[in-house]
Amino acid sequence: MSTPRAPTLVVVSGMSGSGKSGALHTLEDLGYYCVDNLPAELLPEFVQRMHGSEGAPEKMAVAIDARSLGDLAEVPGILSQVGAIGVDPRLLFLEARSDAILRRYADTRRRHPLSHLGLSLADAIALERQALRPLRQIADILIDTSELNVHQMRRCILAEFGLDSAGLSLLFESFAYRHGVPVDADFVFDARVLPNPHWDARLRPLSGRDEAVRDYLDAQPEVAAYVAQVQAFLDTWLPKLSTDTRSYVTVAFGCSGGRHRSVYLAERLARHCRDAGWREVATHHRELD
């Protein structure tokens, strides 16, 4: 008989401006019961009440950061208390370079949580980084969002927490070479060798999601051969990557504009993998989404 899994608590922490609110919203989308800005010393009491209540959630997430009352250096001990209750705690820490945080505050014109101390923004960021050091040192998952947009950060959270016990999550991504190859791609396939719908005036305004573009590419012998070879490659090697230590694989297709051929291939190969029995399959079209 399998042992029931302990309820999960994700503690979300990190620098202001690093994306904590977005991370908490993503966890909420995944079915977590979420609470923002809970004082750290109240965490055991909160977990005890939730754990002992009728219909208690199996997944909880709490944001604890520099706004929280109390000494953050005590959080490791507090998490040990949570574990003793019978809940599995994991600490997710989001950080970003100071220049990236400065830029984000300049864009949003929001006030830093420590600005009430009369500090400049740069000094408030430095003080917060120092205060959060005890949490960063014990983080189970550390994500640097300096070069990530909201969608990329969300994908990181989904990759870490959106999986079930079935194993590997697959992401099929399209992109334009002129904007650079995705840095997180595990496999990259170049679609620029294939016939380009861009040169058909009827198809140019459309994308690889549209039926007319799909019909055009389906009718090309080169495309059929290309797809067959990529399918064979993925069918051979993806199962070998499905291990306990690997949670996701990103397969990227690039073309000139990231609109027709790459989108078509990402969608078609994602559909193939779903049909083949992979349970966690998603698509992302960088130049369209």
Rank of each mutant, 00 (worst) to 15 (best):
E28P: 03
T250N: 10
Y226G: 04
R178G: 02
S53C: 11
V12W: 06
L203G: 02
M153E: 06
D107P: 08
D218E: 12
H112W: 08
A276H: 04
V281T: 05
H285A: 00
S21V: 14
F187H: 15
L9E: 07
R129W: 11
S13V: 06
A66T: 12
D99L: 07
G17Q: 10
E28W: 00
E173G: 04
Q220K: 13
A166V: 06
V193E: 11
P221Q: 06
D244S: 14
V12G: 07
P44A: 02
V75I: 13
L158C: 11
V230T: 10
I125E: 05
L217R: 01
R109F: 05
R268H: 13
G162R: 02
Y32P: 05
D235A: 11
D36P: 08
L117M: 15
G180L: 00
D88M: 12
R110V: 04
H51V: 06
V188K: 01
M1L: 13
A96P: 00
S16M: 05
M1T: 15
I125G: 03
L168G: 05
V87I: 15
V251N: 07
T236G: 08
Q137W: 08
E267K: 01
H151P: 01
H151D: 14
L234W: 04
Q48P: 03
I101Y: 03
S16W: 07
D244Y: 00
L42I: 08
D289K: 03
P89F: 00
D164E: 03
D235M: 11
S13H: 08
F189Q: 01
L171A: 11
S262T: 13
R271P: 02
R133K: 11
R104L: 03
S68C: 11
V75S: 00
P205R: 00
L79R: 07
L265Q: 00
A131P: 00
H25W: 00
Y248F: 12
V12C: 07
L217W: 05
L72N: 04
E54N: 08
I143L: 11
T236R: 13
C156A: 13
D29C: 01
A185F: 02
L119C: 09
V181S: 01
G17I: 13
G162F: 01
A73C: 01
G17M: 03
A225K: 13
R155L: 14
P76W: 09
S169R: 10
L79P: 01
Q231P: 02
S256C: 05
R67T: 01
L265Y: 02
A139N: 02
D210I: 03
Q231R: 15
P239R: 05
R49D: 00
V193A: 14
N37K: 10
H284T: 02
S98V: 14
T245H: 10
E160S: 10
F172I: 05
V87K: 02
S120K: 09
A56C: 02
C273V: 06
A191C: 15
A100C: 01
D29Y: 07
R133D: 10
